[in-house]
Design a protein around this nucleic acid. Structure first.
Lengths: 139, 139
DNA sequence: TTGTAAAGGAGAATCATTCTTATTTAATAA
DNA sequence: TTATTAAATAAGAATGATTCTCCTTTACAA
């Protein structure tokens, strides 16, 4: 995605467009691999050599807050960030730390129908996601 | 579950049966609410007043390693532990920190069928779980 | 009963993340 | 264009969960 689109995306949510925010969001899009805060710091260190790690966390929080990115939790204990915000699922590699987005409209429908039929007593569903664990051939 | 069953469960996996391990596993079963390490520490502090917090983490790791309990990740950044190890899903409350086990054999079948039909190129599925987010009536 | 590998206790260390405070800056209005 | 100001950043201390180290204790096999 071009820088101008990124600037617009940030501005459209009512956030100030700062070089740090642009660099971080660009990093998430171009890394495209559910990076950690540290991965992002590494990726932007040429363009933002003086950025504070605390700033990266604060920017990430703001982007999550405004639904520009999403948080992805893992068992490794580090938070990871996903630039794709549409309803989707994740493939988790149990051998390496790879996470891939898994988009499956048919699966969404299947689950939506299932949960419409089968209400859960005492619980009101807002959304759902499937965590698919396994191995990538490349691993 | 009775203490003797717990001792057997630990012994059957080839682990030494220690009072700390028994107390921790008993805490997980009786709390029955996906406790954190700290929750467990609180629960066992009468019977194990001198247990080190590091020991709790080490015991939990051993129990997970031997498939007696499971780790549950959350966005709150604390690891939680689940004494139910059969294939199941989780209901996450987005208002409080409640997590409930969600057992739905029909859903398991639905997903198994779906993934049998729809192979994911380059990825070999080992297992899957649905994370259902919403609110409990009681919250 | 003893020997020994495994487990536990104490507390320091680590690591991701958050907080505090002073400084800087983006965006708005004059 | 410049001045104003609320919001954002830098720096680094603080926090909090978890891990590690090292020494002591214990479960259990022989």
């Amino acid at each position: 995605m071009e820088i101008e689109k990124i600037r617009e995306e940030i501005a459209n949510k009512g956030l100030k467009v700062t070089p740090q925010r642009v660099a971080i969001l660009e990093a998430i899009y171009s890394l495209n691999n559910h990076p950690t805060a540290e991965n992002i710091a590494d990726h932007i260190k040429e363009s933002q050599p003086n950025i504070a790690i605390g700033t990266i966390y604060k920017v990430l929080d703001a982007l999550v807050e405004h639904n520009i990115i999403k948080k992805v939790t893992t068992e490794a204990g580090k938070m990871r960030y996903d630039g794709f915000t549409e309803h989707h699922h994740h493939l988790y590699c149990i051998e390496c730390d790879l996470i891939e987005d898994y988009i499956d409209e048919e699966l969404n429908e299947l689950l939506k129908n299932h949960f419409n039929k089968k209400r859960i007593k005492g619980f009101h569903i807002k959304n759902f996601a499937v965590q698919v664990n396994g191995t990538f051939d490349k691993c």
